[in-house]
Design a protein around this nucleic acid. Structure first.
Lengths: 139, 139
DNA sequence: AAAGATATGCAACAAGGTTTCATGATAAAT
DNA sequence: ATTTATCATGAAACCTTGTTGCATATCTTT
């Protein structure tokens, strides 16, 4: 929590209760990857006055300063991840649940370098059917 | 073009000029990965009466029968790809341009199998800065 | 050629996210 | 501690992307 305050200050941003509450909320979803709406509902529990637009704005800022990540697993909604270490994701085509894939499970090897371009992030997203949906018991 | 007709028939779908025109349009964007809107504009050139909702519906069907693919590279809009062979994508964080990465350039090795889950697709999306944006000449 | 089934166009709608603007809170400088 | 300049917030309006309901039109099969 101290760390964020440093980062916010370093970026010339103010320390507001909303910002701290939103970050807390995102962090509270261990293993789950919340949408902005999910975060909004969670924050409201302890901070009923917060507005949805503030949540959107704070999420953007937290991504900007690298305190959380946006994961791109759907073309229709944004999802956030408080985990900052590298890892990958599995998305169930049926129930849409998102699972973490530990970095150690997969090795990504470049056979030839990507000439001219600068790589900032490597997103590996596996789409398939999870345990529940694969065996037929829809969720 | 013959192939699609077979696929549509096999899926119990009718052969309509709109469906053929939308597929043609998607195919015409070599190397570019159009949004539904892009496809709509392109189709309109030769088929001015088509409606946007039809384009959305046809794109869905074409994805369903595997004639085109939806690529997930943004959380806010869908993009389509007529290329059916496996390959990956690079997205420029600055100009948002999408580049194809040939399959041969990257090798994805599973160190441990994904227990219980069935893999349908492996999407590898690299985010970074492209030639133009990296060197400072914004686009 | 007719019948049945499916697709289309239009317009209304919905979800997710953004923007504007007046007000309120923060941080730096007295 | 107070003031002041700046930045952030809440509320509501708005925008973009995609979806749906329904009447009409078009396919396909007989």
């Amino acid at each position: 929590m101290h760390e964020v305050i440093q980062k916010l200050k370093a970026a010339g941003l103010k320390i507001t209760p909303q910002r701290l509450a939103v970050l807390e909320a995102v962090k509270s979803f261990h293993g789950y990857h919340p949408t902005a709406e999910d975060v909004y509902k969670k924050v409201k529990e302890k901070y009923p006055a917060i507005s949805l637009s503030t949540v959107y704005r704070v999420l953007d800022k937290l991504v900007e300063i690298g305190e959380i990540k946006e994961i791109v697993v759907s073309s229709s909604e944004r999802r956030y991840d408080a985990r900052k270490d590298a890892h990958y994701h599995f998305v169930c085509k049926n129930c849409k649940k998102i699972y973490d894939i530990p970095k150690e499970m997969v090795e990504i090897v470049w056979k030839k370098p990507l000439e001219g371009k600068k790589i900032l992030n490597q997103n590996f997203v596996v789409v398939g059917l999870c345990e529940n949906c694969y065996t037929g018991n829809e969720e």
